[in-house]
Amino acid sequence: MSDRDLDLYNQVLEGDKGALEELYDKYEKLLYSFAYKSCGQKEMAEEVMQEVFIKVWTQKATYDSSKGKFSSWILSVTRFTSIDIVRKKENQNYSLEEERDTLHQEEPSAEDLAEWKEQGEIVREAVKQLSEEQNKIIQLFYFKGLTQREIASSCNLSLGTVKGRIRLALKHLRKELSNIKEKGGVGDA
């Protein structure tokens, strides 16, 4: 599966529009949903999609297969792009609260990425097991991409404790994930 990604990516480097379109189709919904979770607004999420694929096409961002899976790479490009776009809007006094869209949310359909389908449910279930504070710090740090200082003030923590709390929350999440996987997935409990 990931070999197919690499083949397609190499074709994109050669200027193959069809290959870019195939990658787009494959990742559209995952990347859009991820960007939407970060931005909370559909126009911005679309702007993120535009930027991400421009970066791939113009090679402003380049993938190196020795450093991991294509999917991890394109997800991280999407995360950085989301953080950047949200911060640029904030510079213009854009308020996330006011304009948060509510989009119809659903489960991934059969055509969606197998990885997402398998993992999504497990990861969301694991996130539910976290305390409210731990959930919040992960949202602010990972999805919203706030600075350490912003996280500190938002969570009423001293600057020095933020990193430790994030690591603790992520480790707790990892533990919940492996618990769920050991039990053989969601719903078997």
Binding site: E28, K29, L30, Y32, S33, F34, Y36, K37, K42, E46, M49, L75, T78, R79, L103, H104, Q105, E106, E107, P108, S109, D112, E115, W116, Q119, G120, V123, R124, V127, I138, Y142, F143, L177
Partner: peptide, 12 residues
């Protein structure tokens, strides 16, 4: 694994 926690939303 965290990106997969994103709830699926239908692209416009």
């Amino acid at each position: 694994d965290l990106p997969y926690a994103a709830e699926p939303v239908e692209p416009p």
